[in-house]
Amino acid sequence: MSSSKEKPKDRQPKSAFSRRSWLQGAGVSGSVLTTGLLAEEAQAQTAANVMSGEVEITLDINGKKRSVKVEPRVTLLDALRNRLDMTGAKRVCDRGTCGACTVIVGGKVMYGCSVLAVDAVGKPIQTIEGLAPEGQLHPVSKAFVNHDAQQCGYCTPGFIMATKGFLDRNPNPTTEQIDKALSGNLCRCGTYMGMKAAVLEAAKEIKNG
């Protein structure tokens, strides 16, 4: 499955490291290190590189400045969920595969688990909480409800954000483009049947404003 999402490894990170799995340092479990790539990266890094202690940063989330104290290794996802009580983005694979943590950073659809909170400073961050005011639904959310493109719902916010980011870039998508755009997100209950129709309906709704 190819993902259209930009992962941090594709960009120039501000910090000295290229993989957040390693950046989490102590958080990396032994079994993950059995995969070759991470093991090599682990050897390439030295303990002296690891910063510790919390720093206060300001994040621009849904148009509001939010101050938060994080260690440099804390991901944007964990900053949102654990420190700012913004729990719409979910932690599922925690390794940039499933898309349940999808957020939009600097206009780009990204996995929140694969961006460090400190790297998100200075960029506008959109999360699902900012899509619509309390009591209202964004057209994408509404279309997912209409087409029952959700069951347990744990993957849903990620899909909604991936769809939102996709429609921002491509307001007139074909079904093939939808397949590709959402292939970086996974659902376990199997809610894909209504999803294409939901995305098409949302696109129409957004255009008609």
Binding site: T87, E129, L137, D148, G153
Partner: peptide, 17 residues
Amino acid sequence: ARLDGPMKSSGRAKYPS
């Protein structure tokens, strides 16, 4: 349509986690 759909698709549904 499922009644808790809007809560889930707006990210407002609070799961145990």
